[in-house]
Computed example of a mutant assay.
Amino acid sequence: MTVIAWIVEGTWAACVDAARTHAPSDADIVLLHVSGSEAPGAARGAYAGLFGRARPDRDPGTVVEHLATEAGEHLLADAAERLGRPCTRTERRGRVEREVVAAAEGADLLILARDGDRTHLGPRSLGPASRFIVDHAPCPVLLVWPEAAPGTDTIPPPPPHPPHHR
């Protein structure tokens, strides 16, 4: 059995705890971090727009890529330590939601945490990337709250319906 826990700043501990709790002891656990391509691309575009291409050695996009990779490695190391059992650490780069879905191909379980509005129950408790992943995951998904779940009194009211005509 292969279990993938998506490691993201701010919610990773809940995913690791869920893997520790729900993955069988003989499961192969993969801790997955994805460095998005948006920030390095924006830095490159801004630099090129302001200064042209004369000094590619000063491209801030490369620095941002290295910083993101380093931050991801630290998160993965912290997650592996918290997990406390053998695991594989995987770092990917690209469009986050698509990389997570691609990494989940062939997995038996994908664990991710809610990353939107966590003060209310409901669909807004998922950010755009998490919503995409939940909707497109090629395997079962375990969706966890990074902290205690809000009470059921936070469920949004039903939409108004027009009165029935007889």
Results as ranks from 00 to 15, higher is better:
E99Y: 05
E91N: 03
R89S: 14
R58P: 00
E91L: 14
T88W: 05
L67D: 15
E99P: 03
G61W: 11
H33R: 06
A80F: 04
G106N: 08
V101M: 08
R95F: 09
L83M: 07
G61A: 06
T62Y: 08
A27M: 07
V63F: 10
E65D: 13
E70G: 04
H22D: 09
A27F: 04
A54E: 10
T90M: 13
D59I: 09
G49F: 12
T21I: 00
H74C: 04
E70C: 03
A68F: 01
A71T: 15
G45H: 04
D108S: 11
T88Q: 14
E97A: 15
I29M: 01
R53H: 11
L75Y: 04
H74V: 09
G106M: 07
E70L: 12
A107I: 02
P60M: 05
A27I: 04
A102E: 14
H74R: 15
E99I: 07
A107E: 02
A102L: 10
A71L: 10
E105C: 09
H74A: 14
T90F: 00
T69L: 10
S25I: 06
P60G: 05
A42P: 00
T90S: 13
V34T: 03
A43Q: 11
G36H: 02
R55F: 14
G61D: 09
E99S: 13
A80N: 01
R82S: 08
L83K: 02
R82G: 00
A80C: 05
A54Q: 09
A68N: 13
E99G: 04
E91D: 00
H74W: 08
T90V: 15
L32Q: 01
T88S: 12
L83Y: 03
V63W: 12
R44M: 09
G52F: 04
R44L: 08
A102N: 14
D108Q: 07
R85Y: 11
P60F: 08
A48W: 02
T88R: 15
S25L: 12
G72V: 10
A102R: 12
D78G: 00
Y47C: 06
A79F: 02
L31F: 02
A54K: 08
G49Y: 12
G94R: 09
V64P: 09
V96Q: 01
H22C: 11
G61E: 08
E99W: 06
P40L: 05
E105K: 14
T88C: 04
V100I: 15
R82D: 01
V64E: 10
D26P: 03
D78F: 01
E91F: 11
R82V: 00
F51C: 06
P86H: 06
S25Q: 14
L75K: 03
L50S: 10
A102I: 01
R58C: 07
V30E: 01
G36F: 07
E105A: 14
L75H: 11
D108Y: 03
V101G: 03
H66N: 14
G41Y: 13
G94V: 05
D26E: 14
H66Q: 15
R93H: 15
A27Q: 02
H66I: 09
E73S: 12
L31T: 02
V96R: 02
P86I: 00
G84N: 08
P40A: 05
G72K: 04
D78Y: 02
G49P: 10
S35G: 15
P56W: 01
A42S: 07
